[in-house]
């Protein structure tokens, strides 16, 4: 694995806590192809997609990328099983130019594949619930598509969140609740904090917010796209992408404390546009670039 620090490392001193970027590793090269939208597994696995979320790929080791699927949509919001051995994704095909989606469970070893939903419209990407089960949202409710493995010991109340018709829908204790904490509009990128008590989301044109599970705003994080929780729930990682209405002019990765008071740049590059970060292990952030290269930032606390 190449270990090239090509990104300007930045250190900021924070009141009580200091996080610095120790190193940034390049996980894929331009020669290997363009890859986007990384997703991290529980044991350090890294998935990513091709351009347009076409195809799903697993980083198996230095210089080795395994193709799990080449289908349209396969790389859009895949999710791992709790043990990291399987991945759930939603490929689609066109029939009369209408999308027909399926939900596929595939072992990352690549030897087993099961189709859980076949050729349907109007269901969301799969999400893993805190109890390990995997579910999708349809307009009619939450559908557990796979009860994977035993329930973890410290399972918190099963809370899950999706976007339905632009609004946030939240399931808790089997109840479905539609939330529009900031009124009508498009809500994006919702996720539940690791302790199951808070909701992180973006409202298009308004910014990114943390609310309680009733939708009462707790913190306004400002302009912070594609936000994701850190595993300890203390930070949010996001991209700050700026455009002129045609092209992305610049984009960098930042983390912000969940009280919104401390923001630290993970990348600060003029020439390269870093996008769509995810927090992998406690001290790792994986992100892509607009040109299609995947990187990993290693944090030091």
């Amino acid at each position: 694995m190449k270990n090239i620090c090509i990104v300007l490392l930045l250190t900021l001193s924070v009141n009580a806590q200091t996080i610095t970027v120790g190193a940034i590793e390049q996980l894929t090269t331009e020669q290997q192809g363009q890859f986007f939208h990384p997703v991290a597994g529980p044991n350090g696995e890294v998935l990513f997609s091709g351009a347009g979320y076409v195809g799903l790929y697993l980083l198996e080791g230095p210089d080795h990328i395994k193709t799990l699927s080449e289908a349209l949509g396969a790389g859009y919001e895949p999710t791992f099983s709790a043990d990291g051995k399987n991945v759930y994704f939603k490929p689609y095909r066109y029939e009369g130019m209408r999308k027909l989606s399926s939900l596929v469970k595939k072992s990352i070893s690549g030897d087993r594949e099961k189709i859980l939903i076949k050729d349907e419209r109007h269901f969301t990407s799969a999400k893993r619930l805190p109890n390990g089960a995997v579910a999708v949202n349809r307009d009619t409710g939450l559908y557990v598509v796979d009860k994977s493995g035993p329930e973890p010991k410290n399972a918190i109340a099963p809370v899950s969140v999706f976007i339905e018709k632009g609004k946030i829908v939240l399931y808790k204790n089997g109840e479905k609740k539609t939330l529009t904490p900031l009124g009508d509009g498009f809500y994006l990128w919702p996720s539940i904090s690791p302790d199951g008590t808070k909701l992180l989301f973006t409202k298009a044109g308004k910014g990114t917010f943390i609310s309680n599970l009733e939708g009462a705003i707790l913190v306004e994080l400002g302009y912070a796209n594609a936000p994701q929780w850190s595993p300890d729930g203390k930070w949010v990682v996001f991209m700050r992408d700026l455009d002129d209405g045609h092209q992305v002019l610049e984009s960098d990765i930042f983390i912000t404390s969940v009280d919104g008071k401390t923001t630290i740049a993970i990348t600060e590059t003029g020439d390269q546009k870093e996008v769509y970060p995810v927090w992998a292990a406690d001290n790792e952030i994986i992100f892509g670039t607009e040109k299609g290269v995947i990187y990993k930032a290693i944090l030091e606390k």
Binding site: S101, T202, A204, K206, N225
Partner: peptide
Amino acid sequence: AEDDLPLSQISAIANSNDVDYFQSIH
């Protein structure tokens, strides 16, 4: 001014709505 959404948010709206086709007019 508030309708001038960031481009990443516009594509995220298309993605979360699972549309069959996307058309941008300029």
